[in-house]
Design a protein around this nucleic acid. Structure first.
Length: 473
RNA sequence: GUGGCUAUGGUAUAAUGGUUAUUACUCUGGUUUGUGGUACCGGCAAUACGGGUUCAAUUCCCGUUAGCCACCCCA
């Protein structure tokens, strides 16, 4: 927040504390202790920094939720046999213009591209699939046992106009399976995405479609464009423009008038080669088998050029607002070859973490509205100390507890027990350990139940065990 | 990228063309220094930025920036 030159508002009257407070007792009677001295107003100098547009801090209070999302994703990916991969955030710009395709918004409008010091064109990655494909080629992963299955989690960058659930820097979790052409792969990826969200407590709808091979699509587009031209006058202005630029996009237009036209439009499923159609049918069968509900959506096309055959998206069940797509993916059989590798079948998906966080936040707010809502207690204990000796001793005891993997909170910087208990209370821990002068001498410690207020004296040697028992309850 | 709405302490809010900008929460200190969750007394902290109209702007006007919503796009 900008701090203006303070217009010399209140001139504080300094009534008290002229001398350094002599010794406690003497001063106390003279000066009422409950009046804090007013300070001179300081001018804060210097610029005020704000986060860049579309960027945001993930704050401490969101930390638990983010760690939970990460660990859920990690657990599921591992359980399905995916290995972790991490590729650089900065890549050659060409990598993405080639793969995602010129003409797409992601490449044309949204990439953070700039010139590096050596004059090369680099960019902040707008997605990871191309990087994974690049890595597969660079490191000769075609010699690994196939398929190569990897998962990733990280920041992406797209220079779009920020909106709720849409940021310029955002996180994606995703999985890629490379090297095998099998409908099981597609079904498994959808299952991973679906189950990740379900484990997080989000019911989703899977929309699925097939856009066939590049050839299938070209044939279809010719047909589609012909149809759209014949109905041109019924289309929205937006869609009229798209006929030439990106005719597939007319399919999922939100305009009512367009949707009416699309009902009669040729469907891509009818233009698939026998091979692609058969493959797609198999994917659907596997999904049925895996018990994953899906909605066949002939109008679903995706915005990146490299997709072939299967494409899918996941939507939050109770979706409102326009940013309700939580993730998506599909097959990209041509990508690796396009980037200079062998012809390699592959497929993948990614989930938008900020979108998921948004849904979870809504759910949590609903929960908190309910009357019987109780916030969860942190899985730890608070350690309070009194006096210098106790403070020193507490460091040793806290270390001992931590060595047993017990979580210990403290506020050793404060000296009054009152302040420390207050902190303990705010944290919401179930028990507090209290170490005072007396306890140091007796080699004991107090264990206070924060709910009942009952305190127990425990031998310091037994403290780790005692805490362990308390926390395991 | 296009359009609409909005902008007061950290958060949520009140008010006004004219002294010191309201209130609550949070944070922080205290209520005779070994006991928190309720009470009481203090303290920190705001009119987004720049320009214009005016004797006077936080208030009216314009621009900028940011946020939200819709489009676009996508995660």
């Amino acid at each position: 927040m900008p701090r203006k030159k303070a217009p010399a508002k209140k001139q504080p009257k300094k009534v008290l504390a002229k001398k350094a407070p002599a010794k406690k007792k003497a001063v106390k009677k003279v000066v009422p202790k409950n009046v804090a001295p007013k300070k001179e107003k300081k001018k804060t100098k210097g610029p005020n920094y704000a986060t860049l547009r579309g960027m945001k801090d993930i704050l401490p209070k969101e930390g638990v939720s983010w760690q939970h999302m990460y660990h859920t994703a990690e657990d599921i990916a591992n359980a399905y046999g995916f290995s972790y991969i991490e590729t650089p955030i900065l890549e050659q710009a060409m990598l993405f213009t080639r793969s995602i395709g010129k003409g797409t918004d992601v490449v044309d409008k949204e990439m953070y591209v700039f010139e590096d010091k050596d004059g090369s064109r680099v960019c902040l990655r707008p997605e990871v699939t191309a990087s994974v494909a690049r890595s597969y080629i660079n490191h000769g992963m075609q010699t690994f046992p196939q398929p190569v299955k990897v998962w990733y989690w990280g920041q992406m960058f797209r220079h779009d106009r920020p909106q709720a659930g849409r940021y310029r820097q955002f996180h994606q979790f995703g999985c890629e399976t490379l090297g095998v052409q099998s409908p099981v792969v597609d079904a498994e990826l959808i299952a991973v995405a679906y189950n990740t969200l379900r484990d997080l407590g989000i019911e989703t709808t899977v929309r699925i479609n097939s856009i066939g091979t590049v050839e299938d699509r070209e044939n279809y587009i010719v047909e589609l464009v012909g149809y759209l031209r014949s109905k041109r006058s019924y289309l929205s202005d937006e869609s009229k423009k798209r006929i030439n630029k990106n005719p597939l996009r007319v399919l999922d237009s939100k305009h009512e008038q367009d949707q009416a036209v699309m009902e009669e439009a040729p469907q891509i499923l009818d233009w698939l080669s026998d091979k692609s159609r058969g493959f797609f049918m198999n994917v659907l069968e596997y999904l049925d088998e895996a018990g994953i509900p899906y909605v066949l959506t002939p109008t679903l096309v995706r915005g990146l050029d490299y997709y072939t055959d299967t494409v899918f998206e996941l939507y939050a069940e109770d979706d409102e607002g326009s940013q309700s797509a939580l993730g998506g993916g599909g097959r990209y059989n041509g990508l690796i070859e396009q980037l200079g590798g062998e012809e390699t079948p592959a497929a993948g998906f990614s989930l938008g973490i900020e979108r998921i966080a948004m849904v979870l936040k809504k759910q949590r707010e609903e929960l908190e509205k309910q009357e019987n809502y109780k916030p969860e207690k942190p899985g730890g204990i608070f350690f309070a100390q009194l006096g210098e000796q106790a403070c020193k001793r507490s460091l040793y005891l806290i270390e001992e507890l931590r060595r047993k993997d017990l979580r210990v909170y403290h506020n050793l910087a404060k000296s009054s027990l009152k302040a420390q208990l207050e902190t303990a209370n705010k944290l919401g821990v179930s028990h507090t350990l209290i170490l005072g002068q007396k306890e140091v001498q007796d080699e004991t410690i107090l264990v206070r139940n924060m709910e009942s207020g009952i305190q127990e004296v425990v031998d310091q040697k037994k403290i780790a065990n005692t805490v362990q028992k308390l926390l395991s309850k």
